[in-house]
Structure formats: C-alpha cells, structure tokens
C-alpha cells in the first residue's frame, strides 16, 4: 500500500493563488484515506512529516502556463536559496533526504495555471477547471505503486516542456 501525502499550498485570499489549497481539499473530499494538507506556505517541519511517506504530491499555482504541469522532482535538483520563512518543494525534498534519511520514493510537483491574484476568494474559470482536471487525473494514479507513477509521469515528459498530463492509468 503506497502511503501518499498531498500538500497543496497558496493563499486562498488572493484569487488563483489558492489553487493548490483547493486542489488538496478536493482530493481530501474524494479520498478520505489520504493525508492531505492545505497550507498557506511550505515550512521546514514538513520535511520531517514527508520522511514517512512513499509518495508526496505538491500542488501549487503557477503563472505563465496554459495547462497542467506535472513534474517528478528529483533529489538532485539545484539548491535554491530560501529567502524567507517559505520554502519550495525542491527545498523540502532536499531537507528530507539530507536530514531524515528516508525520503519518499516519489515526489511530484503539480503546477496549476493561474492568472488572477486579486484580493478575493474566487478563482478564474480556467484555474478552477484545471483543478478539477487534475483531481480527476490524480484519482487515476491512486492505485499505482510509486514507481509506476514515476514511469507514467516521466514517460510523458517531453524534453521541451518538462510537463506532463498523464492520460490514463493503463
């Protein structure tokens, strides 16, 4: 049984920026057995939490893209400089591996297209539909072993875009 942790993050009071949180909340509704966090930002203690899971899926809002991007994060990602209390998923993966010695087999980053960041709780139509799109696709990856998800996702990564939408789970 794959132990899966879903972490959606962003600010729900800034329009589309809350896409990650909403997506995680939707997954929590549909899959009550999963651990799903909806967070304002990523904080270092998540590294400790992550270390006991097989698969971790980060969901964030992203500007300048039209469709979902679904990456497999590799541990050898370039180190970025955390400038603030907030960290990136790559930072957290790095922390988990180096400090807690048992990293998840598979860490994914899902970027949801976002365009409007006004002071409101609503999201744009495109962002909302992309969230639903992702939630559906995520369901299809649920029963897979972490390694198979990696195959599924990486098999679809094109060199130019580094993005993927897994079509079906077979």
């Amino acid at each position: 049984m794959t132990r899966t942790l879903v972490i959606g993050f962003g600010n729900t009071l800034r329009g589309d920026d809350g896409a990650g949180q909403l997506a995680a909340a939707r997954i929590a509704e549909l899959h009550p057995d999963l651990t799903c966090f909806s967070l304002v930002e990523l904080t270092p203690e998540l590294a400790d939490t992550m270390s006991v899971y097989d698969r971790v899926v980060f969901i964030d809002a992203s500007v300048g893209i039209e469709t979902l991007r679904w990456h497999v994060l590799r541990p050898s990602v370039e180190r970025t400089q955390p400038r603030s209390h907030a960290l990136t998923p790559g930072d957290l993966l790095q922390l988990t591996i180096e400090l807690f010695n048992s990293a998840p087999q598979q860490v994914e980053l899902v970027e949801i297209p976002a365009s409007q960041f006004g002071f409101c709780e609503e999201m744009s139509i495109h962002t909302r539909s992309m969230i639903e799109n992702f939630v559906g696709l995520f369901g299809e990856t649920m029963d897979l072993h972490a390694g198979d998800v990696a195959y599924l996702v990486s098999a679809h990564v094109s060199d130019s875009s580094q993005s993927v939408i897994p079509s079906t789970a077979n």
Partner: peptide
C-alpha cells in the same frame, strides 16, 4: 459555481 462572471 466556478467563477462569478458579474462584477461585485
């Protein structure tokens, strides 16, 4: 309801 199309 996905988005409110009308101005608040």
């Amino acid at each position: 309801l996905q988005y409110v199309r009308f101005p608040y």
